[in-house]
């Protein structure tokens, strides 16, 4: 039984069947990649996992509990963190403040009125945030205005914000989209490091085969809203159905 179990999920937008009978099982402490051509339903599936969309039918169980009908912040509090295609960070705040917010979210829950302590007095939280920045080699940028950083650094920061929550499942939505080859390789290295340092389950939505084959333990191929195959990277590489989905029937 995987930590994330998707069973028989359907999602329809008007006449378009975005997801058709999707089944998916993500094993704990593995890296599971979901790939597929444009319009295959990868993002729709991801949005069903984080509470942005509610599937028409089917179930999504995380750690034995259903996530359906829950709001994004509730799902996050269950232990699912998400990295976005374009980094979503608190641009007007400093790097340290960006990492402090998830620290507070983990300690205090979805809402708390700590209106009378100063942030500076919260030594534990500051230490934790600084430790995370050091782990990500960003300690020297702690007082930088987050919006003024390079895109690569924003991505690093977003990952730091997700990891400091110690999520059980990290969802990555095309973490290398629009990146140069060098940046892509850096991101792969970063994810490998993260994987090496702690027990974490990752589900990656990705376009770039290079990234997928460097990281994934298991791969699910989506085509036209349905899973085509699910297998190890070695077996996926030569799979005729996958070639067909990606390159067209004639290939």
């Amino acid at each position: 039984m995987g930590i994330l179990e998707v069973k028989g999920v359907n999602k329809r937008f008007g006449g378009l069947q975005a997801l058709g009978d999707v089944n998916l099982s993500v094993t704990e402490n593995s890296v599971h990649a979901i790939i597929g051509p444009n319009g295959a339903g990868k993002s729709t599936l991801l949005n069903c996992l984080v509470g942005k969309l509610i599937p028409d039918t089917g179930s999504v169980m995380f750690n034995g509990q259903s996530v359906l009908g829950r709001k994004p912040h509730e799902i996050n509090q269950m232990g699912i963190s998400r990295v976005f295609q374009t980094p979503e960070i608190f641009g007007d705040l400093t790097v340290l403040e960006n990492v402090l917010i998830p620290c507070f979210a983990r300690r205090d829950g979805a809402f708390s009125m700590h209106a009378f302590e100063t942030v500076g007095q919260e030594r534990d939280m500051l230490d934790e945030a600084m430790q995370m920045l050091e782990d990500m080699n960003m300690a020297d940028k702690r007082d930088m205005h987050a919006a003024s950083m390079s895109r690569g650094d924003k991505r690093r920061l977003e990952m730091a914000m997700c990891l400091v929550q110690q999520p059980r499942l990290l969802l990555l939505d095309e973490p290398t989209a629009g990146m140069s080859r060098a940046d892509t390789n850096n991101t792969i290295e970063l994810l490998k490091q993260i994987k090496g340092k702690r027990d974490i389950t990752m589900a990656i939505i990705e376009h770039d085969m290079h990234v997928v084959f460097s990281l994934a333990d298991r791969i699910t191929v989506l085509a036209q809203g349905s899973p085509l195959v699910e297998d190890t990277p070695e077996n996926i590489k030569g799979h005729p159905k996958v070639r067909e989905a990606y390159l067209g029937e004639s290939a």
């Binding site: 994004p72 912040h73 963190s81 976005f84 979503e88 998830p102 979805a110 914000m161 929550q165």
Partner: peptide
């Protein structure tokens, strides 16, 4: 980001 960081 706030919502996806577990805050309401």
């Amino acid at each position: 980001r706030l919502n996806y960081t577990g805050l309401n």
